[in-house]
Simulated scan of single mutants.
Amino acid sequence: MNNDTILINKKSWDEVAPRFYGRTALPEYGPFAPEETELKLFGSVRGKKVLDIGCGSGHSLKYMNDNGAAELWGLDLSHSQISAAGELLKDTNVKLFQSPMELNPGLPQTYFDVVYSIFSLGWTTNLEQTLKNVHEYLKPGGVFIFSWEHPLFSRIQNTDDGLLFNKSYHEEGPYDHQAWNHPAIMQQYKVSTYINSLVDTGFKIIKMVEEARITDELISRDHNRWYNWSKVQSVPTTIIFKCEKH
């Protein structure tokens, strides 16, 4: 775990949290990605204990509550995000923890039916430790679902000559995201690194999704942004995994 990176990212998220209020939350998995209403990766969550890693403003937990989840638990690095989630979910039984995802702040082990992370996992400074924590939180047979920016997307840029690689796909590790306007450090991994890390941790991969869904509304909303139409036509924005604990 890199404490310096975590402190930088916490400060950044505490500042920008209002700008991301309610953004990229279930049923959405990510920009231009198929939604849960189509994929149905979770199935019924009625009566289940769920944990959100990187819960942000709490809107994915609200989605879980609206669909009958029995227990709502959330973890996020940012004090601002946890405060927003607490206010949004004040009429529920939610339990919220402000903590890096690399640490267990007191969450029960072998307890949850479902752990998920919507467009947050790439902020971890230690993928293996975070996956180990998730595996420990889940009951045997429990499900882990997560989405993140597709590893190809930030390696390719729009130019006047078309789409070009701006860094090697083989390069992994921390990087400053081109579209992030505050000091912050994300992590870059190959698809094979995610797959192998999940398998090595003890997960069975049930499904991987990297398709795009393109609508006129999304094209209009995201025009000239990082996730723009000309790039999305050729490069997937989002990768989604559904896994099961052995």
Results as ranks from 00 to 15, higher is better:
residue 2 N to Y: 13
residue 3 N to A: 11
residue 5 T to H: 11
residue 6 I to L: 15
residue 6 I to H: 09
residue 6 I to Q: 05
residue 6 I to A: 08
residue 10 K to E: 15
residue 13 W to Y: 15
residue 15 E to N: 07
residue 17 A to F: 06
residue 22 G to Y: 03
residue 23 R to L: 14
residue 24 T to R: 03
residue 25 A to V: 04
residue 25 A to Y: 03
residue 26 L to R: 03
residue 27 P to H: 05
residue 27 P to R: 00
residue 28 E to W: 13
residue 30 G to V: 03
residue 30 G to C: 02
residue 33 A to E: 02
residue 33 A to F: 05
residue 35 E to L: 03
residue 40 K to H: 12
residue 42 F to T: 01
residue 43 G to V: 09
residue 45 V to P: 14
residue 46 R to Q: 08
residue 47 G to N: 06
residue 48 K to E: 13
residue 50 V to N: 07
residue 51 L to K: 02
residue 54 G to I: 03
residue 55 C to K: 04
residue 55 C to E: 07
residue 59 H to G: 06
residue 60 S to R: 06
residue 64 M to K: 01
residue 69 A to I: 07
residue 73 W to L: 00
residue 80 S to W: 07
residue 80 S to I: 09
residue 81 Q to N: 12
residue 83 S to K: 10
residue 88 L to S: 06
residue 88 L to F: 08
residue 90 K to A: 07
residue 92 T to S: 14
residue 92 T to K: 02
residue 94 V to W: 03
residue 94 V to S: 11
residue 94 V to D: 06
residue 95 K to W: 11
residue 96 L to F: 13
residue 97 F to M: 05
residue 102 E to Q: 07
residue 104 N to H: 05
residue 105 P to N: 03
residue 105 P to F: 01
residue 107 L to E: 00
residue 108 P to L: 07
residue 111 Y to G: 03
residue 113 D to W: 10
residue 115 V to G: 02
residue 116 Y to I: 02
residue 117 S to F: 08
residue 120 S to K: 03
residue 122 G to V: 04
residue 123 W to T: 08
residue 124 T to M: 00
residue 127 L to E: 10
residue 131 L to V: 04
residue 132 K to D: 14
residue 134 V to F: 06
residue 134 V to H: 03
residue 137 Y to C: 03
residue 137 Y to G: 07
residue 138 L to N: 05
residue 139 K to P: 13
residue 139 K to V: 13
residue 139 K to F: 12
residue 139 K to Q: 14
residue 143 V to N: 12
residue 145 I to M: 07
residue 147 S to Y: 07
residue 147 S to E: 11
residue 149 E to Y: 10
residue 150 H to P: 01
residue 150 H to S: 05
residue 152 L to G: 01
residue 153 F to H: 10
residue 155 R to E: 08
residue 157 Q to A: 14
residue 162 G to D: 05
residue 169 Y to C: 02
residue 169 Y to I: 14
residue 171 E to P: 00
residue 174 P to G: 05
residue 176 D to G: 02
residue 179 A to Y: 15
residue 179 A to E: 10
residue 181 N to W: 15
residue 185 I to P: 08
residue 185 I to H: 07
residue 185 I to Y: 10
residue 188 Q to E: 14
residue 191 V to R: 09
residue 191 V to S: 00
residue 192 S to G: 01
residue 193 T to P: 10
residue 193 T to D: 12
residue 194 Y to D: 01
residue 195 I to S: 02
residue 195 I to L: 12
residue 200 D to V: 11
residue 202 G to Q: 03
residue 205 I to Y: 07
residue 207 K to Q: 15
residue 211 E to Y: 08
residue 215 T to C: 09
residue 216 D to G: 06
residue 217 E to R: 00
residue 219 I to F: 12
residue 219 I to K: 10
residue 219 I to R: 04
residue 219 I to V: 15
residue 221 R to P: 01
residue 225 R to C: 11
residue 226 W to M: 04
residue 228 N to C: 11
residue 230 S to D: 15
residue 230 S to E: 15
residue 234 S to L: 13
residue 237 T to S: 14
residue 244 E to H: 01
residue 246 H to Y: 12
